[in-house]
Every structure is written in C-alpha cells, then in structure tokens.
Amino acid sequence: MQKILNMVAQRLTLGLLVLFVVSIIIFLGVELLPGDLAEAMLGQSATEETLAAFRKELKLDLPMHTRYLEWLFNILQGDFGKSLANGREISELIETRLSNTLFLALFSAFIAVPLSLTLGVLAAMYRNTFYDRTVNILTLSSISFPEFFIAYILIFVFSINLGWMPSLSNVSPETPLGERLFVSLMPALTLTLVVMAHMMRMTRAAIINLLASPYIEMANLKGLSRARVILRHALPNAWAPIINVVVINLAYLIVGVVIVEVVFVYPGLGQLIVDSVQNRDIPVVQACSLIFAATYILLNLTADILSIISNPRLLHPR
C-alpha cells in the first residue's frame, strides 16, 4: 500500500510540473496565432484607434511575459480570472460547461464500458464464430465513420423519421435529471459507437493472448467450462491492458467530444475552448487546457493504480 501512496504523491508532483509546462506551451501557442482578441472581437470594423483602446483596457499591450506571470500568480491563488471577451468570471463560465461535459462522459461511459467489455469477453469466448465476426465488423465500421456522420444518421433516423428523440440537446443546469438523460441519449450513443470498438477489441485481444498460456491449458484439461476458464482464469490477468484502454477512452470522452457537441448543440467544454481559441481569449483557453491536461494526468494515474491493484505481483513486490 505504501508503494501506491508513494507513487501517487510522486505522480501528482510530476503532474503539477506537466500542468505548468502545458500552460506555457498553450500561452505561447495562442500568442503565435495571428491576431489578438481585440482584432477578433472587432473583426472587419476594427480601426487603429479602437484597437489601441481595446488593448489598453484589457492590458493586451503589456509584454507577453508580464501577462503570463500575472496570470500564473492569480492561478496559484486559485483565481482563474475573468474572460477578456465578456468580462465574466471564468470559474463561473466553466462550472456549468464542465459539469455538462462530465455528465455526458459518464453517461456514455456507463453505456459504453459494460457493453464493450461484455461484447469483448463474448467475442473471445466464441472466437472466430459468426457472432465474433459480426461484432467485429459492426464495431470497426462504427469507429471508421467520422463522428458527425454517425450523429447525423442517428438524428435522421430517430429525430426526423421516427420523431422519438429531440435533435437538440441543449441542457441547462435547471434541466431535471430524467429529461437530461433523455436529451443526452443520442450524443451518448454517438460517443458509445465511436469508442466501443477500441475497448471491445482490446478486451478480446487481451483474453485471447492469455488463452495460449499453460495455466489456461491446465484449466481446460481439468474440464472447466469455457465461461469459467475465461472469467475466472483469463480475465483477472487481462485487466491491466483493458483498464489502460478504457481509461484512454474515458479521457477521450471528456476532451474529444467537440464535434458531437456541435452537432447536438450540447453546451460542453469543447465548444468553449474552440470559441476562445478563435477569439484569442487566452485566460479561458488556459483554464480549459489545464482542465483537460489534469483530466489526462489523473486518469492515467488511476489507470496505473488500478493495474497495480489488479496484479498481485506489483501489489506485493519482493
């Protein structure tokens, strides 16, 4: 146990360092993009005078490092600052968006993870049968289509032709849970179809990989049922790679859903970061990127901890 705690502490420290580096890279990246917030906000109607006034008010005329250090100083005190574009508190702006994104990610994960693990185990059990091939073809095709295409197909069938589901998923904090689940079902299904193949194939491959091991052969010779061999003997040793893939996909569900958000008009974090990059609203971009980076770091840490726990050799090292 001590080992895990040590690792967590070490990883979190490194994580903070990564976040710091990420924030510098993002800041420089946005700075390198042509134009700034003043130009983006005024667009075609910008004049030299109004640009100058705009920059002065938002302190965009200060040198780059001054602005970065000021931002860093505030963030260390837990203050995300205000959006340059509309003067709103960023924490306020992000709060609902982040909870929407997390809600959709969790909802999709609740559908996708059990479904793909079951399908994967079954595919390993009935390897090279008609069932195995069908599931493979279906999941691989759904991962091969672009997300917006799957989304449009779902909208076409369920919203326009059948009229069962709404095509807009614009939830708000006041939406009751039942309705929220209902309107988010289609985006969640789209995401499920997109991430399922990866997890299902990995589960199948990890189990099949073990089926050639001597101890599985032994189990087979003992006359155990196929289900028991796979669930009790093979699966526990296959957890580590499966967990890794599941976690990568969970991270994807949080940070990579901007297209699904656009098609279903779901107010998540992805849309916020895209808008902010377009308008060079650096504090918002920074805040969103930090959240995304932290998501990756924490989820990877979780994956490692779970792999250790699932493997006695790592849990009790000599």
Partner: peptide
C-alpha cells in the same frame, strides 16, 4: 479617446 466601440467612426 478610450472608446473601443465599433461605432466610433
């Protein structure tokens, strides 16, 4: 002078 309005002109 400090106007950042697009309608300044």
């Amino acid at each position: 002078k400090d106007s950042k309005s697009a309608a300044k002109p």
